[in-house]
Amino acid sequence: MVLDSPVLEVRNLWASVGDAPILKGVNFRVMPGEVHAIMGPNGSGKSTLANVLAGHPLYQVTEGEVLFRGEDLLSMAPEDRARRGFFLSFQHPIEIAGVRLDQFMRASYNAVQKSRGQEELDALKFDRLVKSKSKLVELDPTLIRRSVNEGFSGGEKKRTEILQMSILEPTLAILDETDSGLDVDALRVVAEGINQLRTTDNAVVVITHYQRILEYIVPDVVNILSNGRFVKSGRRELAFEIEARGYDWLQETEDRVGVGP
């Protein structure tokens, strides 16, 4: 029997913006089929971690190694990461004036398909694919004819991100504060959509401030990020503890660790 190899393995990852270090030695591993939650207070480096893994040019990796399906992720261009099955659901999805959402999604889908030597879809066939997927997140069908994210509500933006995830079927999806700006109903819809996309082969990393979304997407592992590194790791119960106690007690723990022998 072949043992499962990790989808993602992050080893001692350091990253900065300009001269300011933000990630200070992050280590974790995500196995196929897993849901991995990363929680942390504002400014702890959660979004930086997501963006660094996706290859945003604003961030420089100063140390460490990341393996994605056994390959060196950090040496790949952002589009190559995406084409190999890495997906980031943006905390703040970007607006693109004049570019219709369906055109954007088709350009994306076909770029990925092309890189894999698989069939690219014409507008008609792609339309069918989108229709079949839209139900998953209960997306207003008129939205896909509008400019990408332009004038979308917070909920519409997040639904759209998950729609794209469902179309691209990534091996690893990082959801960066997908729950922020969603009301309870929208959160449930989006979370259920994400759950339906889960398989034994892919994995999801949920980045969040609150444990609310984790009531719907049940994590196998919960890591707490604080000041650029993981300060506590646990199972689902850790998220409940955060909900009850906040993040401050972890900060203190970390400080003690910092000065300890």
């Binding site: 604003l58 589009e79 995406a82 943006f90 999805p93 970007i94 004036a97 994306s108 400019s147 691209l168």
Partner: peptide
Amino acid sequence: SEDQLFYCNQRGMSTEEANALIINGFC
């Protein structure tokens, strides 16, 4: 913007493809 290009890159498009898409949208 860099963010627009990155968004497109993250969805698998090359920077050239992204530029063409954004510019065609503009036109």
